[in-house]
Design a protein around this nucleic acid. Sequence first.
DNA 1: CAATTAATGTCAATAAACTTGATATACTAT
DNA 2: ATAGTATATCAAGTTTATTGACATTAATTG
Lengths: 181, 181
Amino acid sequence: MTASILKDAERYLKTSSKWVSGEGTAEDITSDDLFATTELMFLAYLGTLEDTALQLKEVGLGRIHHRLLYVAVKKPGKSVGDILTFLRVTNQNIHRPLGDLVKLGYVEQRTSVTDRRKRELHATPKGVEMFEFLVQRQYDRFRGVYDTVGPESLKEFWKVLWCILDQHDRDWLLKEQQPES
Amino acid sequence: MTASILKDAERYLKTSSKWVSGEGTAEDITSDDLFATTELMFLAYLGTLEDTALQLKEVGLGRIHHRLLYVAVKKPGKSVGDILTFLRVTNQNIHRPLGDLVKLGYVEQRTSVTDRRKRELHATPKGVEMFEFLVQRQYDRFRGVYDTVGPESLKEFWKVLWCILDQHDRDWLLKEQQPES
DNA sequence: CAATTAATGTCAATAAACTTGATATACTAT
DNA sequence: ATAGTATATCAAGTTTATTGACATTAATTG
């Protein structure tokens, strides 16, 4: 099963790219070489989105709720303004979902001690729990993948994804986590 | 520049995963290991989406137009029903954008010879041109990435993406292209 | 301290997108 | 002939996204 998936991958790669099979130099990157990344990322992302869509519907939350929880859980202490640019959400669209999360007891807003205009977001234990619930099926998918491809491939995978990011996203990810107050 | 990006990637990986650095067995995959994939894919996909958003706005088309063009250009001869399930678009939502593309001369609908109920989608030369225009900036991004990471990493990258896909998407991608009639 | 700027939050109008359900036509299969 | 399939349209209702104006609080500047 596992082996046949990897064999299928080879078949796909062969028809999609001359470049990775060493039949061309870097200058010969074709439109097909480039499109393979577009196509695979599109479908892989759709799949992982659907994983969480089921859980989100179950608890009556939406994508913006999910993204906000992500930041509150994994990057605690970020200000609303930081999040607006990071999550590409507009000022007007963030407040309803954010209010929901606060009301439901998943997220706390604390006034920053260094700049009392800013509100820092922190997930509550209940919020952490909810986040883990939402990504359940996504994690199941990834666990299967990790077992299939092994740590070395995974490392290359992450490296390439890292390179695809915008510089400002790389900066954001490398920023030290704010200490929990 | 290129080297520093890869160094940053190593830094990110170190804080995100015990597993890939060989400090744990497959049974020890942590929530952080799994979340790294979620996070990187989310941001990478957002970035590539924004690349095409600019071009789409310029020509007054939307995401569904883009997806339909993708199939018409890269998988010519697919029926409307195939596309509905593949692109996760509903019957009611496909027809307006599809009609637009036909009116604009980017896509042709041909009645299938084997089943005259089915309409097969084919991109016109003008449609192919438009598609290439839309993905311009995305391709620029990827070209830079390919140059940075090299063909071997890219191959591993594609392999992992392939494993993330749903089985029915893998099947779809391996299906022989319908011959152009 | 007064004036300005920044960060957050609210209100409202319009537009765009998605959902649901009903319905019609052309064609295939039995 | 009948039943089922693939495509297409119409419409109502809901949700989201977009735009612009504006209020509040706090930091900053002069």
